[in-house]
Design a binder for these strands. Sequence first.
DNA 1: CCTTGACTTAGAGTGCACTCGAAGAGTTAC
DNA 2: GTAACTCTTCGAGTGCACTCTAAGTCAAGG
Lengths: 138, 138
Amino acid sequence: MTELTIDQAAERMGISKHTLRYYEREGLLPEIAKGANGHRRYTEEDLGWVKFLQLLRGTGMPIREMKHFVSLTWAGDHTIAERVEVLERYRVALAARMEADREHMQFLNHKIDYYSGVLELENATPDAVAGERAEARL
Amino acid sequence: MTELTIDQAAERMGISKHTLRYYEREGLLPEIAKGANGHRRYTEEDLGWVKFLQLLRGTGMPIREMKHFVSLTWAGDHTIAERVEVLERYRVALAARMEADREHMQFLNHKIDYYSGVLELENATPDAVAGERAEARL
DNA sequence: CCTTGACTTAGAGTGCACTCGAAGAGTTAC
DNA sequence: GTAACTCTTCGAGTGCACTCTAAGTCAAGG
C-alpha cells in the first residue's frame, strides 16, 4: 500500500538514493522488495530500519561495526548480551565526544566574545585601536 | 631554551609528527625554526598555536577553512569582523551537532536499557524466553 | 516510433585528513 | 669508521563513507 519508491524514501529519510542502495549492498538493510518493473519498493518497516541505521551511525559507529551489529540483531536474542557490550562502548565514546564538544563550544564563545569586545571598542573609540594587539590565548 | 624536538612536540600535543609537518606544509602553522642540524625546534608559542588549531579543528572546521581563518588571523585586526562571522557559523553548526548527539545518546540509553531488561528477564526466569520478540522500535 | 526520464547493476571516482615510504643527510654508539 | 638512528623533503598511499558513471532496461508522453 504505502510503499515508496527509492526517490520518495530518499527524500523522506534525508539521505541520497545512492546511499540507500549502498547500505543495501553492504548488508546493512535487508534486501528491499522489488515491484513488477524491478524497482525497489520501500515499506514502512524498511524506513524504520533506515532510521535505526541513521541513529546508529550518529552515535559514531563506523559502517564496519554497523554491519556487525546489524548481523547480531538479525541473528536473534542470544546475541543481546554482545549487543549491549557494543552499545556501551559507543556510549562511552559518545560521552567523551560530547564532553569535548562542550570545550570546543566554550572556545568559540570565548573567541567570539573577545573579538566582539574588540569590535565594540573600535566602534566606540575609532582612534584608540592601535594598542589592541593581545590575542586571547585561549 | 625550552624548545622541543618534533618528537617531543608530537608527544606533548597528542598528535603525530606527520601531522605536525603536514599542518606546517599546509600553512596552518608558521614556519617552525630549525636548529643547526636542520631539525625543527618548537617553541612554547608554536605549541600554543598547535593547541589553537586543535580547538579550531574540534569545532568541526575543515582544514580548508582553517587555512582561511589562520590567514585572517595573521592579516591583522581589520579581519576581526570576518573572523567573528566564521566563528558564528561554526558555533551554530556545533550547537546542532551537540543537539543531535543528545538524541543519539538517548537512543543508546534506551536501547541499552531495553536490552538489559531482556537480559535480566532471561536470568530471572530462564524458561519464559520464547515470547520475547518485540524489538524496541526506537 | 522515438525521445525522455527514472530506474537497475557493477565498479570506478571523490574528498577529506591524514599517514606513510623512499631517498638522503647528519649525529651517536660501539 | 661504520652501523643504527632520527631527522629532512616530496610525493604517493590509505581508509572512510559515500558519490557518481556507464551501460542497459523499461514505461509513459507526444
